[in-house]
Simulated scan of single mutants.
Amino acid sequence: MTIITLGPEGTFSHELTLKMGYSGTVTLLPTIHRIMDAVARGEGDGIVPMENSEAGSVGETLDGLSRYPLFITAEMYMPVHHNLASLVPLEKIRVIYAHPQTHEQCSEYIEKWGVPVIHTSSNASSALEAKKTPNAGAILSASAAALYRIPVIVPDTENNLSNTTRFVRISPTPAGDDHPEKCSIFIDPSTDRAGLLHDLLEAFASRGINLTRIESRPSRRGIGNYVFFLDYAWSPRTADALEELRGITTVKELGCYRKIGVPP
Rank of each mutant, 00 (worst) to 15 (best):
V154K: 15
D178W: 00
I150Y: 00
D178K: 08
Y226E: 07
N159Q: 11
Y148P: 03
A145P: 11
A175V: 02
R221D: 08
L200T: 04
S206F: 07
L230W: 06
T157W: 00
R221F: 06
P174D: 08
A146E: 10
L197Q: 05
N160K: 13
L161A: 15
D177Y: 03
L201P: 08
I153W: 01
P189F: 06
A241L: 06
R220H: 04
I153C: 03
A205Q: 10
K132C: 02
E181K: 12
P236K: 08
F204L: 05
K132N: 07
E158K: 01
N225C: 07
Y226N: 14
R213N: 12
T191Q: 14
L230S: 11
A194K: 14
E202V: 05
W234S: 14
K132R: 15
N159T: 04
N163C: 15
Y232Q: 03
V154D: 08
I187W: 04
S206N: 06
H198T: 13
P189C: 06
Y226Q: 13
A205T: 11
I223V: 12
I223M: 09
G224D: 01
K132Y: 00
G195Q: 06
I223G: 09
K182P: 05
V227D: 02
N210R: 13
C183A: 10
A175H: 05
R207D: 02
E181P: 10
G137Q: 02
V227M: 09
L147Y: 11
A144C: 13
I209S: 13
P236G: 09
N210V: 10
F186Y: 14
A203G: 06
I214V: 15
E202D: 15
I187L: 15
I187D: 05
G137R: 03
R169N: 01
D199H: 12
P174A: 03
I150V: 14
L196G: 12
P151T: 04
K182H: 09
D199V: 02
P134K: 06
L147S: 03
P134C: 02
W234G: 04
K132E: 05
I214K: 06
A205H: 12
S141C: 12
A136M: 00
A194L: 15
S171C: 09
D188L: 11
A175R: 07
R220Y: 11
L161Y: 15
P180Q: 01
P189L: 07
A241H: 04
A233H: 07
